[in-house]
Nucleic acid binder design. Structure first.
Lengths: 248, 248
DNA sequence: TTAGCTTCTTGTCAGTTCGACAAAAAGCGG
DNA sequence: CCGCTTTTTGTCGAACTGACAAGAAGCTAA
């Protein structure tokens, strides 16, 4: 296939992070304003080159999470998304980026004065609705991250990663509503999440009270796979379902 | 973060393929016997280095599919899996591999005399049950590919990618049984797949006949997302589901 | 103190789906 | 025509879903 003098080409490897959280019931993503060219001044996902050839990719994602976002990887969900390597995606040369999805509970604005000071939480709605743009192909990466989140909270307990260690069922409902973009019936939601075995377990003798009736507190359960799953309502009312017995 | 003389390290990029198909109702994966060190003589996933810095990763996957497996990427399902970059995964140096999952309908053995002659279909059961080993971290990649397939045929129409353009409902059932490793009730399966709108559409006036009653033929429908989903039975009978009204 | 407000929690109820199984339908081989 | 195989249609009780009413438990303001 290749003669012996052929040397495989090498590429530069970066890590990009889609970090999602909930702030006042709206889904937000952490973005940085680029300080250097290319795309100077534009918004971009936090990320950067792997530090040396001995660094594992996952470790690089943890490091960027700490350096650029000021977040501790051990306390939040972090999973790999796709890898992006279109030859023209970066004008500086052949740069391949491994994207990661991070899910964090509600957090304060990144502290000024730190390395993460250039980062800020932005409502994802600004980008999904089309007006605002992102540097490089980061809009595509963000879309993939959002779709991954939408799908995974259907079948896994990922939604609890948006919550603190203890949370109310209404907190959890806010997560589903923000990620899916749908309002849900609180009464059906309340019973449904409890019927899924291992999803959430009650924390006894403690309730959180804000305005109405105090709510029971829960914590994430042992099960990762939700069965039955939480199915999101579909955007389109679906073409049509063939009547069962109409065989023509 | 880095001074200006710092140059980001570059890595070698490869593509590895998990190519799945059904042969006589059993799930098979295409593997090659390595002709060179490292891991000479061992079984490995087909794959190779990207050919030059201008080649897109997806295109590289298509090329390897053609060169190593003799398959045409336009006629089968091809999607990206995870990217593997542990520093010690390849003794030759820092080699990062982007894995792809390909799903093909039942196919004959790769033709001898071609570039793909080193490749052969192996039952996945040989590897999942533990005895036989794979080169590098390819066992891990295979496991991820299998888990992806198991999950995606639940929620998407991916299962039809294992079938020819027309197929019977029993053919489709064989796919689910092979990928999940569970036997399913043909009668419930028959009605369930038809109730999912857009999953499969009947091909009129044509039936396939082998031994028993001739079976109606179908083709893949327009819908990608299955709603309601096909839920696989769980290995463990699940701990226990709290009685609905037991609130203590 | 009590009425009103908010939010959480439990009930109800009809339509749908699911899983286990029976039985009919449609071919083939003898 | 009889038995065999495989596909297709029925049946039926249990479980789940989605819509909505209503009770429970706090807070606040008159």
């Amino acid at each position: 296939m290749h003669n012996e003098t052929w040397r495989p080409p090498c590429v530069l490897l970066t890590v990009d992070l889609v970090i999602l959280t909930l702030r006042s019931s709206a889904l937000h993503v952490l973005l940085v304003e680029r300080g250097i060219d290319p795309h100077k001044g534009e918004l971009a996902l936090p990320g950067g080159f792997i530090s040396d050839t001995g660094e594992d990719i996952f470790d690089a994602a943890c490091r960027e999470l700490r350096e650029e976002a000021g977040l501790d990887a051990t306390s939040l969900h972090l999973e790999q998304l796709n890898t992006y390597g279109r030859p023209d995606r970066d004008p500086r040369g052949r740069i391949v980026s491994v994207a990661y999805l991070a899910i964090a509970p509600g957090l304060p604005e990144p502290e000024a004065g730190t390395d993460a000071s250039a980062a800020s939480w932005r409502p994802v709605e600004e980008f999904t609705s089309g007006h605002r743009k992102l540097a490089f192909d980061h809009r595509e990466i963000l879309d993939h991250g959002l779709e991954r989140a939408r799908t995974k909270i259907e079948n896994t307990s990922l939604a609890t990663a948006f919550c603190d260690t203890t949370f109310t069922i209404t907190d959890l409902q806010r997560v589903y509503e923000a990620v899916w973009g749908f309002e849900l019936d609180p009464r059906n939601f309340y019973r449904k999440v409890q019927a899924i075995s291992g999803f959430i377990t009650p924390v006894d003798s403690d309730r959180r009270t804000t305005k109405g009736r105090p709510a029971r507190l829960f914590q994430a359960g042992p099960e990762h796979l939700l069965r039955p799953p939480m199915l999101r309502p579909l955007p389109q009312p679906r073409p049509f379902s063939r009547p069962r017995s109409e065989t023509s």
